[in-house]
Amino acid sequence: MNTLITILRRVLVAVPTIIGVVIVTFILQRALPGDPAVFYAGPSANPEVVARVREQLGLDQPVFMQFLDFIRRLTHGDLGLSISSGHPVLDDLLSRAPASIELTLAALLFAIVVGLPLGMLAALKPGTLVDHACRVIVTVGAAFPTFFVALILIFVFYYQLGIAPEPLGQLNEIYDTIPTTVTGFLLIDTLLAGDTATFQSVAMKLVLPMISLGLFALAPIARITRAAMLETLSSDYCRTARAMGLSYSRMVFSYALRNAMLPIISILGMVFSFLLGGSVLVEQVFAWPGIGAYAVSAVMASDYAAVQGFVLLMAVLYVLLNLVVDLVITAIDPRVRYEH
């Protein structure tokens, strides 16, 4: 019961943030250079047509009315039309979101699976080779731009060694059969279709983008894990655990790691920010059919509705991920749970 209330409170805290995000997105749209009406009416339109378009778009209304209209349309899931694809922006984004989410989650998984043990080992064996390796990876990893890592990986593993598949998109359009869309996530859909060959091909194509994106998130994770573990390992309660004869593994996992998880999970918020931003770059390099690449071409084509929809979707996604982070912390830390 108590927990339920805490969860509800956390969810409520996210509401003003979402409102703020919507307002900023609206302002971004208003700040656009030039007259959107002229833009939407097309190059050959005469003043009457422009005026009609302006009226249609509600641009002749006061800003506040426009904002209300924006909200009203948002509640109907109407993000406007994309001028480059001709489809509703929401449809475009939703059909491409799974590819981005698949990539981002895979990169997160990679960063955690590598970064967490690395940071832990570095903290458990300070001054050893692992510790130094951790420090090098953390400093170097933070200095490599995602897109540069991606290109180097492609050069080495695709061009030089030839062991990576062609770095274009999620599927090999010639050889792979496109599975019927159930979830939109290719890894899942291919499995549902029982098509292991395509699954394998999709998974292989995911490897390089995943590593490129994950490396950038790995540095903060390993860094904070190391610092947090060093602190908890030298804490009084770990001393108690040893004084009570508890086994090494119990001390490390139940006492040190569990407490260290709090700062580690907190930093995931920032890591998500990195990942969502970095995914745009990685998608660009790998011609990944996600929303990042879509947004880049939308920006280039001055497809404002699409850009705005993209920014809004990413922000909402980010707020939700932060909410999940908050909830996980609430689940782990009783002190937060009882806070009023």
């Binding site: 003003p16 943030t17 979402i18 703020g20 995000v21 307002i23 900023v24 997105t25 971004l28 749209q29 700040a31 656009l32 250079p33 998500f272 920010s273 990195f274 990942l275 969502l276 931003g277 970095g278 745009v280 770059l281 947004a295 920006v299 001055s302 404002y304 850009v307 705005q308 993209f310 920014v311 990413m314 922000a315 980010y318 707020v319 932060n322």
Partner: peptide
């Protein structure tokens, strides 16, 4: 504080993209 929270509510690189798109490339 709210203003800063709102900025931080965006994935920062994505916000930067949006700002450049809005203000001019």
């Amino acid at each position: 504080g709210r203003l800063m929270d709102t900025i931080m509510a965006f994935p920062l690189f994505v916000l930067a993209m949006g700002i450049v798109a809005a203000l001019g490339n």
